[in-house]
Simulated scan of single mutants.
Amino acid sequence: MDLLRRLFHREEAAASFCSAVIVAGGRASRMEGIDKILCPMGGEPLLLYTLMPFQTSSLVDEIVLVTREDLMVPIGTLCSQRGITKVRRVVKGGESRTESVLAGLRETDPQASLIAIHDGARPFLPLEVLEQTIETARQRGAAAPALPVKDTIKVAQEGVVQQTPDRARLFGVQTPQVFEASLIKGALTKAWEEGAALTDDCSAVERIGFPVCLTQGSEENIKITTPRDLTWGEAILAERMGR
C-alpha cells in the first residue's frame, strides 16, 4: 500500500484543488425519446440541478462537462445564462463511458490533486454528500457514496440461483466518485488500454489493488434512467421546495 501511495504522489494538503468531471453525454436509450439532460424539471433543465452542488461547494474549484457534440452549444449557453461560473470547459465525449471520462480528465486543470466524477443524470446530490466524499478522498485517496442494499440479492446463471451473497456486505454505489488525480488518470487509462469492461470509475482503481472508501450516500441521489424516474425526481424536487 505504501508503494501505491508513493506511486500516485498522494497529497494531504488541506487546500487541495478539486476538479469535477460531470458526464452528461449518454443517448438515454431507456428514456423513450426524452433527452434527459435538458429535460425540464420544476421549470429548469435537469442538468442545472446536477451542477448546483458543485457550483456552490467551496471544495470544488472547476467543472469540466462531457457531453454529446450536439449538446455542447446548448449546455454552454445554459451555463452562461444561469451563472454556472465554475464550468471551464464543455467537451465532446467518447463512444463509451470510460472514453468520455478520459476526455474530461484530459481537460482538467494540471494543478488538480483531486477529481470528482459525477453522473450528469443525478440531479439531487446533497451538498453534504459531495463534501464528505471529497474530504474522505483527500484523506484516503479514493471514495464514493453508497447505501446498504435493501433487497436480498441472488447470483443466477440461466435463470437458476447459484449463490445468495450476505446482504450486510452489499452496497449500492452512487456518484460522485472522488480520487487522487494521478490515481484515477492512471487507472482509467490502463483499463481502457486493456479493454476492461467497467461499470463505474471505482472499478478502475479496484482492479489495480487500490482500496475505495465508502461514504454515506443519499436516497435522494437517484439517477434518472427511465421516464418513471422523472416522476420520482419531481417528488424529490417538490419536497425540497417545501422545506
Rank of each mutant, 00 (worst) to 15 (best):
A15M: 04
L47S: 02
L38A: 10
M31R: 04
F54Q: 07
G33P: 04
M52L: 14
A28N: 12
V23D: 09
T50R: 00
S16V: 06
L51I: 09
D35Y: 11
A24P: 11
K36G: 05
P45C: 02
A20Y: 06
K36V: 08
P40A: 09
A15S: 11
S16K: 03
S19T: 13
G42D: 10
L51C: 11
A24K: 03
Y49H: 15
I22W: 01
G42R: 03
P45F: 02
A28R: 04
L51M: 10
G26T: 13
A24E: 13
G42W: 03
R30G: 02
S29T: 15
L51H: 05
A15Q: 10
S29H: 12
G25F: 06
E32P: 03
L46N: 08
F17M: 08
M41P: 00
M31F: 11
Y49T: 12
K36R: 15
F17E: 09
I22E: 05
A15L: 05
I34T: 06
M31D: 12
R30D: 12
R27H: 14
A15E: 15
C18T: 15
T50K: 00
A15P: 05
G43C: 05
A20D: 13
T50I: 01
Y49S: 10
V23G: 02
A24W: 05
R30P: 01
L38Q: 11
M52E: 15
L47P: 00
E32I: 02
L48P: 03
G42P: 02
P53M: 10
R30W: 14
P53K: 04
C18E: 09
T50F: 00
F54P: 05
L46W: 02
Y49K: 07
I34L: 11
G26W: 07
E32M: 06
I22L: 03
I37W: 08
E44N: 11
I34G: 02
K36H: 10
G26F: 07
I37D: 07
G25N: 11
L46K: 02
P45H: 04
M31V: 05
I34K: 11
V21W: 00
G25K: 01
M31A: 15
G33N: 09
M52C: 08
S19D: 09
A28H: 13
L51D: 11
A28S: 13
S19F: 08
G33M: 05
L48S: 10
G33W: 13
E32R: 08
G26S: 14
C39H: 15
R30V: 02
L48N: 03
S29N: 12
P45A: 01
T50A: 01
A20E: 13
F54L: 07
I37A: 01
G43R: 03
G33S: 06
I37L: 04
L47D: 04
V21M: 00
I34Q: 06
I34V: 11
K36W: 08
A20V: 14
L47W: 01
L38F: 14
M41E: 14
S19H: 11
S19I: 08
C39I: 04
L38R: 10
D35E: 15
M41C: 07
A28I: 04
G42Y: 05
